[in-house]
Design a protein around this nucleic acid. Structure first.
Length: 422
DNA sequence: TCTGGGGTCCTAGGACCC
DNA sequence: TCTGGGGTCCTAGGACCC
């Protein structure tokens, strides 16, 4: 049996840990630039605030209902996520961290035990140790564990736990096909056209038909709904195959200079991500684009990709490459709203990356320099040491975060003070 | 005025090989 | 009239996830 444990309204729940007065109140957390709603408390959902809804559309609603609004505090959520995952590790021999707020737990190999009591205990322990509410769904496959979790979450009067052990057919009959993990908007539309409206309907469809229209991915989902495990747990974290850093700017940028600084910041951030997983990139793509949502504005969007003849993770080389790409694509006279740097064809030392005939001797020097850079920046904060091409304020300067909560668990100066007096 | 960021996997089709 | 068989690699595009 497999469990899917996920935190309810994760970002909102993190904010509530440090501000318990927010319990029972409508709370939302916004995307970068405070642009869209990305997390909502149940009370906010009840006010019809949509996921991904632009904030400017609901200003009045927020004011009238005294909705509490936060910018997203990724440092805080990342730390809270690690606490949740570490707590969950005690409850199963192996675990897959599926996302920032979800984990699959694999119970196989455990002695006979009471699954329902175990699931309840997971929920209670995370609440007591970390302070966030979770739901636990248990089933014979990952897709069914997801289904169980969905049922647990929907049943507001329930205990936050749902077990699908046998005879889950009736549960599938009341589950909308669009609520099945792996069935998105396009597949839902297609399935509706063929009269498939519930998860149960999908299990009744013809294998070959599913294979043809939903590919092997859809067929796996079907089998898993029937109780046959096809998607196995990934217990060790695979290295990323691509990394990127992209941003929408609060205010559009027009000059090559400004864009150059932003791209340099993104390239440097990508370098950090590469070095963290000890890999190097073979390809770099930089892109810039105007605001595609602004009808009536002159649109322009271009990208440029270049290849390193020796894969690199040196910030210096990545920043240079990004500037080179910008030279190729920049056109004056546009208001650029978005830009980004993407790295691809990552190679990992263990995988035996191919070295170039033209490899230069600076390589070892760069590696030592980057190690020094990372250790300074880890200790004293990101961008304490940076290339001259980067911006002075960091790319954060170009985005807006007006309602950022303190780094309660990640910055000494912002730790919560308990008790009064001196 | 104002609209996120970061990923993965699969398939079809074209180019190429012998 | 009629024109083989078997394969690989790469890319763009489409789907999905959180």
């Amino acid at each position: 049996m497999v469990a899917l444990v996920d935190v309810n309204n994760f970002y909102v729940s993190c904010e509530r840990v440090f501000c318990p007065a927010l319990r029972g109140q409508p709370v939302i957390v916004l995307s970068n630039n405070d642009g869209c709603v990305v997390s909502r408390s149940d009370e906010a959902k009840a006010l019809q605030i949509g996921m991904g809804q632009p904030v400017f559309e609901i200003r009045e609603l927020i004011r009238k209902n005294r909705v509490h609004v936060f910018s997203s505090n990724y440092a805080l959520y990342g730390d809270m996520s690690a606490r949740v995952m570490n707590t969950l590790r005690q409850f199963a021999p192996s675990l897959e961290v599926y996302s920032v707020d979800e984990s699959f737990l694999d119970f196989s190999g455990m002695q006979r035990f009471d699954l329902a009591a175990h699931a309840l205990n997971i929920r209670k322990t995370v609440w007591r140790w970390v302070g966030v509410p979770v739901c636990v769904g248990v089933g014979p496959t990952k897709v069914l564990a997801k289904v169980a979790n969905h049922i647990a979450k929907k049943d507001k009067a329930g205990n936050g736990v749902c077990l699908l052990e046998n005879n889950w057919e009736s549960d599938l009959k009341t589950l909308d096909i669009s609520d099945v993990w792996g069935i998105g908007r396009q597949y839902t539309k297609l399935l509706h056209l063929h009269g498939i409206r519930t998860a149960y309907d999908l299990t009744q469809a013809n294998d070959a038909w599913v294979r043809k229209h939903l590919s092997v991915v859809g067929l796996r989902i079907k089998k898993e709904l029937e109780g046959e495990a096809c998607i196995h747990l990934e217990t060790d974290v695979p290295n990323k195959k691509n990394v990127g850093t992209t941003r929408t700017f609060r205010h559009p940028l027009s000059t090559k200079n400004e864009l150059g600084e932003a791209l340099a910041d993104f390239a440097a951030r990508c370098g950090e991500k590469l070095r963290k997983q000890q890999s190097s990139a073979t390809m770099l793509t930089a892109y810039i684009q105007t605001n595609h949502l602004a009808a009536g504005e002159q649109q322009y969007s271009r990208s440029f990709t270049l290849t390193f003849h020796t894969p690199t993770n040196s910030t210096l080389q990545l920043v240079n490459a990004a500037k080179f790409a910008l030279d190729k694509i920049f056109r004056a006279g546009y208001r650029y709203k978005r830009a980004g740097v993407l790295l691809g064809e990552l190679v990992h030392p263990h995988a035996g990356g191919q070295m170039s005939l033209f490899d230069n001797l600076d390589h070892a020097k760069h590696t030592r320099l980057m190690a020094a850079l990372d250790s300074v920046n880890t200790r004293f904060g990101r961008n304490t040491v940076r290339t001259a091409a980067q911006s002075l304020g960091g790319s954060a300067r170009l985005t807006q975060q007006n309602r950022l909560s303190p780094g309660y668990t990640t910055k000494w100066k912002e730790a919560l003070r308990v008790g009064g007096g001196g």
